[in-house]
């Protein structure tokens, strides 16, 4: 019996259909990128195919960078489907919002996330959608999921945007402690990635460029 799951559904509910299945006896997630009627078929086909392949490649390559991700069991680019390990964990978002843990533990976790993102970037892997909903906690270990918007790149700009996605997520979803969390994240990031400082400097520039903000408004939120 297939069972629809709400596993991470609120964020990716827009793009893919997730179903919990058994795959040769293993608990697995079937992720199908569904067709969108609002866009022309050329764009629809291109995006679904590209994202399926990119996600599978990044999930696999991330492991080599010592970042945990779900095991990829099967990829079918024609059916826009990935079958991957089911991660029985908690979203970092829920962990940070939970009152069970004190802020020291939460800051430590953000530092750990920063370290892992630093490892991804040191290996030229861009997640593309870094949020606290796309990182899970299983047996006290972090597991990164949802690489569909990611890519392989060594561009400073791409890495800076990744960092900014996390910063924005912290601001919008964890309004109360976002500044402390982002500081912890950066500490971890520069500790595992030697070029981290440079990326953070660019992140400030990107942030001030696009929004109705000036650099001096946000510079205090960075640690470089």
């Amino acid at each position: 019996m297939e069972q629809k799951t709400s596993y991470n559904y609120d964020f990716w509910g827009a793009e893919a259909e997730l179903t919990k299945i058994k795959w040769f006896g293993l608990e697995a997630i079937k992720k199908v990128r569904i067709s969108k009627k609002y866009r022309i078929s050329e764009i629809d086909e291109m995006l679904r195919k590209k994202r399926t392949i990119t996600e599978a490649k990044l999930l696999i390559t991330a492991k080599k960078a010592k970042v945990q991700t779900p095991f990829v069991y099967d990829v079918d680019s024609k059916k826009r489907t990935i079958i991957m390990e089911f991660i029985d964990g908690t979203k970092v978002k829920d962990f940070l919002k939970s009152e069970e843990f004190d802020s020291k533990v939460k800051r430590k976790l953000m530092e750990e996330i920063g370290k892992k993102v630093g490892l991804l970037h040191a290996n030229h892997l861009i997640h593309g959608d870094l949020t606290t909903s796309n990182i899970l906690l299983r047996n006290k270990k972090l597991v990164f999921i949802d690489f569909g918007l990611g890519k392989f790149s060594n561009e400073i700009e791409d890495k800076a945007v990744d960092v900014l996605l996390m910063k924005k997520c912290l601001t919008s979803t964890h309004a109360e402690d976002n500044k402390e969390y982002f500081i912890s994240f950066q500490k971890g990031y520069v500790s595992s990635y030697t070029k981290g400082d440079e990326i953070l400097k660019r992140a400030l520039k990107v942030e001030a460029r696009g929004r109705h903000l000036k650099e001096e408004d946000v510079i205090s939120e960075y640690i470089f």
Partner: peptide, 20 residues
């Protein structure tokens, strides 16, 4: 038009799914 509008509709869709 098709490209930039598809992008805008996709992010709007994601916000809709996110905020319920």
């Amino acid at each position: 038009q098709e490209t930039v509008f598809a992008m805008l509709v996709e992010v709007t869709e994601r916000a809709l799914a996110h905020t319920k």
